[in-house]
Design a protein around this nucleic acid. Structure first.
Length: 242
DNA sequence: AAAAGATTCAACCGCTCGCTT
DNA sequence: TAAGCGAGCGGTTGAATCTTT
């Protein structure tokens, strides 16, 4: 078969599209298999990570909302560094994202504390109670919160996939929704006549932006204990687990 | 306008867990 | 029951981007 030089490092748009297609064909479980048959020259692990952290259609990108921040703090206080567990209670957020957020958050706090302690020992600053919900630090406004993919980059890739080559920039006004519809269209021909028992996707369901579908993946709730969590997510959408 | 420093985020690594044979 | 394999998780790192001087 192909030269099996395992690729590492950043993913290209082409690889992304390829991966998305194959995940839709074979499901998001058999990563090793997908890695092999796709010809990506990536490890299954790498494919999974890319999918989970970046390509998954249910992902919310961009800044954490204050509610999410609060929830992260609360859950972290409860569970510690169980990022995936915490992530399960924040639909659209990945463990990696939360982990990164937490790191940033704690570092910032540490710095604040240091600053508060060193110069004048200002006693007024009692905000640094170990890990409770005193959140004064929403992440700094990152202008240009839009990445290539935020601005429809991946969508463009999808289109590119259709047209056979990459499209640069300017993917405005093209929603994630549209993207997944596109993907659907892109891969439908592939699905046709391909009956792999592992292909648990019926293509038409792909476009669903909400992807509650994920019964057994990313954001399945209530796998445990005090799992009843109110999620202040999305115009009043309330998830109750248990 | 350029350089330096700080921050964020994507990706890799190693370990553990769970399923299958 | 034990061994092997694949998937998932948490920690860590390095590149890219943004902010400040």
């Amino acid at each position: 078969m192909m030269q099996d030089e395992i690729r590492k490092g950043p993913w290209t748009e082409k690889e992304d599209l390829l991966l998305v297609n194959f995940v839709h064909l074979f499901g998001d479980r058999r990563w090793d298999f997908i890695a092999k048959v796709s010809g990506l020259n990536r490890t299954g692990k790498s494919c999974r990570l890319r999918w989970v952290n970046y390509l998954h259609p249910g992902l919310k990108r961009g800044k954490m909302t204050p509610q999410e921040e609060r929830l992260v703090l609360e859950l972290h206080a409860k569970w510690g560094n169980r990022w995936s567990r915490i992530a399960r209670n924040l639909p659209g957020r990945t463990d990696n994202e939360i982990k990164n957020y937490w790191r940033t958050h704690t570092r910032k706090k540490a710095q604040e504390r240091k600053r508060a302690m060193s110069p004048s020992l200002s006693s007024s600053n009692c905000s640094s109670s170990s890990n409770t919900t005193t959140v004064n630090s929403s992440p700094p406004p990152r202008t240009g919160e839009t990445s290539f993919y935020d601005t429809g980059g991946l969508e463009q890739v999808a289109l590119a996939g259709k047209n056979g080559e990459a499209v640069q920039g300017g993917g405005k006004g093209y929603s994630t929704d549209d993207f997944w519809k596109d993907i659907e269209n892109t891969i439908e021909p592939l699905c046709d006549g391909f009956s792999e028992e592992g292909c648990k996707f019926s293509c038409p369901s792909l476009a669903s932006p909400s992807w509650e579908y994920c019964s057994d993946t990313l954001w399945s709730f209530g796998d445990d204990e005090e799992g009843k969590v109110f999620l202040p997510y999305d115009e009043g959408t309330t998830f109750l687990t248990g």
